[in-house]
């Protein structure tokens, strides 16, 4: 059972452009295990939304089932949330987005929820390019049922039970890029400095934005033999680039040296400046992005950061050519053609 956090707040807490404090973006107290990576991601979501000055009531939280999918109760308590059924969040998010195109949709899923039971819905929401942020809290195991391997567990990786996973793993980022996603990023729950700007950029992107966050399960999958442990990820992660995210309406003050930085303007007016350490990775090109992931995988390294970005794609509403007005605000006069039209129409059936 989740409980509310204490209600007092210090008057000097910093406020954002809307006059809200960070507390206005928090939710109920977490019931996950102490040290769970998921709680760090919840905090990163809170920071990102606070710092972007998003209206909490303008955000909808969507999730499936599993440890990850419980977290929407622990952030953005003033936003509506929908904890649906296992692996089906994408369809609920699609319908919700069709009804109201103006909300910010933050979906939270896990590796079981996405890469196994929800794989069918996941690949199709990518194809539809639904405008949402899809966060995978990826710990390589099923926590709520006590640590079975998931489909993102690397072959040979072993959790608490000690038996190496014999099956090939699914790389959701590589899959999403192959399916044509316009924004694909990978973060680590232990690296807030990288994760918060990744989430902000994902929110700024219009269309489907996948943020796969490696999030160690402290109880079942944080062993020396696991590739989803805090230690392993720290030792093996590499970034495509360091980057700055400049939110919309903020003046750009920094000057970057020509040639070293690539800038991408997001749909909401925000800008991402990528400072590349490796010249060979051009994340705006799909093939190059997949190559980079494969090369790092072969070397036994985990590639993080913005893995692919493409701001030229149409989202679902643009593809369907739906009206700019939110469908859930349309009334009888907008929707019902009336009896005269009906009776005229009936002549076609006589």
């Amino acid at each position: 059972m989740s409980s509310p956090r204490p209600g007092f707040r210090h008057p000097d807490l910093p406020k954002n452009d809307l006059g809200y404090t960070r507390r206005d973006y928090e939710g109920a107290a977490s019931t996950l295990c102490a040290g769970c990576g998921h709680d760090s991601i919840s905090n990163a979501i809170i920071n990102a939304c606070f710092e972007l000055s998003l209206e909490p009531s303008g955000i909808a939280k969507m999730s499936g089932i599993g440890c990850s999918s419980k977290t929407p109760a622990y952030f953005l308590g003033k936003s509506h949330g929908f904890n649906s059924v296992h692996g089906r969040m994408p369809s609920i998010a699609t319908g919700a987005n069709m009804a109201n195109r103006d909300l910010v949709y933050i979906g939270v899923s896990g590796d079981g929820d996405t890469a196994s039971i929800g794989m069918g819905q996941f690949v199709h929401i990518v194809r539809r390019n639904l405008n949402m942020v899809y966060i995978v809290m990826n710990n390589g195991c099923y926590g709520l049922t006590k640590g079975q391997d998931s489909a993102t567990a690397d072959r040979g990786s072993a959790g608490k039970k000690g038996r190496p996973n014999p099956f090939e793993s699914i790389d959701l980022c590589e899959l999403a890029i192959a399916l044509g996603a316009g924004f694909v990023a990978r973060g680590f729950s232990g690296d807030k400095e990288q994760l918060v700007p990744l989430l902000k950029a994902a929110i700024g992107h219009r269309g489907f934005a996948l943020v796969d966050v490696i999030s160690p399960c402290v109880t079942f999958n944080n062993t020396a033999a696991s590739t989803k442990s805090y230690q392993w990820v720290r030792d093996h992660m590499e970034a495509t680039a360091t980057f700055d995210f400049i939110p919309p309406r903020k003046e750009i003050t920094t000057q970057y040296e020509k040639g070293t930085t690539q800038s991408v303007t997001l749909h909401d007016g925000g800008v991402v400046h990528l400072h590349k350490c490796d010249e060979s990775i051009d994340v705006t090109r799909r093939r190059c992005a997949i190559d980079a992931l494969e090369q790092h995988r072969e070397k036994g390294r985990l590639l993080t950061g913005i893995l692919h970005i493409n701001e030229t794609l149409k989202d679902t509403h643009e593809i369907l050519e739906t009206t700019e007005t939110r469908l859930n605000t349309l009334m009888e006069k907008d929707l019902c053609p009336g009896n005269r039209v009906l009776q005229d129409m009936m002549e076609n059936y006589r």
Binding site: P90, G95, A99, L320, E321, T322
Partner: peptide, 28 residues
């Protein structure tokens, strides 16, 4: 000329009803 309706062919019936539910939940 834009549509006051969103019709989506889904990948299966699970999603078909999921879309309808998500939209209904959101007031459409």
């Amino acid at each position: 000329g834009k549509k006051k309706v969103a019709i989506l062919q889904a990948e299966d019936e699970l999603t078909a009803l999921g879309i309808a539910l998500g939209a209904s939940w959101n007031g459409a």
